[in-house]
Amino acid sequence: MTVIASNSAALRAQNGSRLANDALNTAMARLSSGNRINSAADDAAGLAISNSMTSQINGMNQAISNANNGISLAQTADGALSEVTNNLQRIRELAVQSASGTYSDDDRANMQTEVTELQKQIADAMKTQFNGVNLFSTSDQAINIQTGADATDQVALKITGLDMSAVTGTVATGTAAAGLGTALAAGDSRIGTDHVITAEDVAYGAQFTGSGSSPAAVDSSAIGSTVTLKAGDQMYEAATTAGTVTGGVDISTAAGATAALDTLDQAIASVNTTRASLGAGESRLNSVVNSLTNNVTNLTDAKSRISDADFSVETTNLAKAQILNQAATAMLAQANQSQQGVLKLLQ
Score class of each variant (00 low, 15 high):
residue 9 A to M: 09
residue 17 S to M: 13
residue 18 R to W: 08
residue 20 A to F: 08
residue 21 N to C: 05
residue 31 L to N: 02
residue 33 S to A: 06
residue 40 A to N: 13
residue 40 A to F: 12
residue 41 A to Y: 10
residue 42 D to G: 09
residue 43 D to L: 02
residue 44 A to L: 08
residue 48 A to T: 01
residue 49 I to M: 11
residue 50 S to W: 06
residue 51 N to H: 12
residue 51 N to F: 07
residue 52 S to D: 09
residue 53 M to S: 09
residue 53 M to I: 01
residue 54 T to N: 15
residue 54 T to G: 14
residue 57 I to C: 11
residue 57 I to E: 04
residue 60 M to V: 09
residue 60 M to P: 09
residue 61 N to A: 14
residue 63 A to D: 09
residue 65 S to I: 11
residue 70 G to P: 03
residue 71 I to V: 15
residue 78 D to H: 12
residue 82 S to K: 13
residue 87 N to G: 02
residue 90 R to Q: 11
residue 96 V to R: 01
residue 102 T to F: 13
residue 103 Y to Q: 13
residue 106 D to Q: 11
residue 107 D to M: 14
residue 112 Q to H: 00
residue 114 E to F: 01
residue 132 G to D: 01
residue 136 F to H: 06
residue 138 T to H: 02
residue 140 D to Q: 06
residue 142 A to M: 00
residue 143 I to D: 02
residue 148 G to T: 00
residue 157 L to S: 03
residue 160 T to R: 05
residue 164 M to A: 10
residue 166 A to K: 13
residue 170 T to V: 15
residue 177 A to T: 15
residue 178 A to V: 03
residue 181 G to V: 07
residue 183 A to G: 07
residue 191 I to H: 10
residue 195 H to E: 12
residue 200 E to N: 13
residue 201 D to T: 12
residue 205 G to D: 09
residue 208 F to Y: 12
residue 209 T to A: 08
residue 212 G to H: 08
residue 220 S to H: 13
residue 222 A to R: 15
residue 224 G to H: 14
residue 226 T to W: 12
residue 229 L to M: 14
residue 229 L to S: 12
residue 243 G to T: 07
residue 246 T to P: 09
residue 251 I to S: 08
residue 253 T to P: 01
residue 253 T to Q: 03
residue 255 A to H: 08
residue 260 A to T: 06
residue 262 D to R: 03
residue 271 V to G: 08
residue 271 V to R: 10
residue 274 T to R: 04
residue 275 R to N: 02
residue 277 S to F: 04
residue 286 N to C: 01
residue 286 N to D: 08
residue 288 V to D: 05
residue 294 N to A: 15
residue 295 N to R: 15
residue 300 T to D: 01
residue 304 S to Q: 08
residue 307 S to H: 00
residue 308 D to V: 09
residue 309 A to F: 06
residue 315 T to V: 04
residue 316 T to M: 05
residue 323 I to V: 14
residue 323 I to G: 00
residue 331 M to E: 03
residue 339 Q to I: 13
residue 345 L to G: 14
residue 346 L to H: 10
